[in-house]
Amino acid sequence: MTSDARNPRARILGTGRALPAAPENAAPSDTPPADGAASDASAGKARRRAAAGETTSDLATRAARAALDAAGIGPRDLEMIILATSSGDAPMPATAVYVQQKLGAELIPSFDLSASLTGLLYGLSVANQFVTAGTMRHVLVIGADLLSRRVDPRDRAAAALFGDGAGAVVIGPAAGDGRGILSVSLRADGRKADVLQVPGGGSAEPLTPERLADRRHTLRVNQLELRQAVEERLGGQALAALATAGLAPADLDWVIPHHADAHVAALLSERLGCPKQRVIGALDGGSAAGASAGSVAIALDEALRDGRVQPGHRVLLCALGGGLTWGSAVVRM
């Protein structure tokens, strides 16, 4: 799943993000912890929570409009909408069709993609194929999640990890100046499917009063195994994406992981041999923290708009999430 790194044919034309108005504490201090809930130093950090009545498609649409404005095109210029989410408006239909409706786009293909925190990179890969093949000119890729609606509020450790937000990118033809998507590398390991999951509510476990009482419809995360997977997989996959792009770690200007806490920043800094200051993300509990499929695009948009990422910069995007899924992309902005 690669582009010609020497002459990329697709690039990111514009980015956007949408966040709930204000952060809230992960769990009220008087909320009893769930049985067996793991303690975590990050518990109690502020994570942004959507307001009552605010939906995944609302945030996704706001992020999409910002990305379209940045790209200099309108909704009717789009030829496809891909929405990466694990917390759509409803089990059916795809939340992407609500985004299509709210944007006022044409009757274009619009679908959801489920790859947890890696969803934005999976969507980027799909869009890259269509644009590179010349089949489509403008594809909108959105990562959006309202995982606060999926977290058991008694599980303070999980609640501290996940918040709400959306990020979007518009993919279009490259201009022949070397800027574009240089490589995308994706992986999955279904043997680790239970590390991060919502077990109830599907065909395997239809919801019943008993399963609801047991909170099988809420997010379950094995934080120890998830962290081990990040340590084992994220750095290696990043190096693979760089090799495919014909680049060395020293060629990178920035690294944007799905959630750059101090541990992840140190890990990537060591594996890639780059300063921690070059790792962009939620080091200070910022707005990209815990936004799941939206995290990478949110952080990229922030860095573009505040001037850290400049035209021509080489940026590594990487993520790991439920599935387990993980991947990396190298982009020259």
Rank of each mutant, 00 (worst) to 15 (best):
R11T: 04
I12R: 05
P20N: 10
P33M: 12
D35K: 07
K45I: 13
R49N: 00
D58W: 01
R62H: 12
A66I: 07
I73K: 09
E79K: 12
I81E: 08
I82T: 14
A96T: 07
Y98R: 03
S110G: 03
L113A: 06
A115P: 02
S116T: 13
T118M: 06
V126C: 14
A127G: 15
Q129I: 13
T132V: 13
V139N: 11
L146C: 06
S148W: 01
S148G: 13
V151E: 08
D152G: 03
P153T: 13
R156K: 14
A157C: 09
A158M: 06
G165K: 05
V169D: 07
A174T: 12
A175D: 15
G176P: 00
G178A: 13
G178R: 06
R179E: 11
G180S: 07
I181F: 07
A188Q: 09
A193N: 11
P199F: 10
A204C: 15
E205Q: 14
T218F: 00
L219F: 03
R220S: 13
V221Y: 06
N222L: 15
N222S: 14
Q223S: 08
L226W: 00
L226E: 01
V230H: 01
E231M: 03
E231F: 02
A240I: 01
L242R: 12
L252G: 07
V255M: 09
V255I: 14
H258V: 01
L268F: 11
A282P: 08
A289T: 13
A291C: 10
A299K: 00
D306G: 15
V309E: 03
C318H: 04
L320S: 02
G322M: 14
G327N: 11
G327M: 08
V330A: 09
R332L: 08
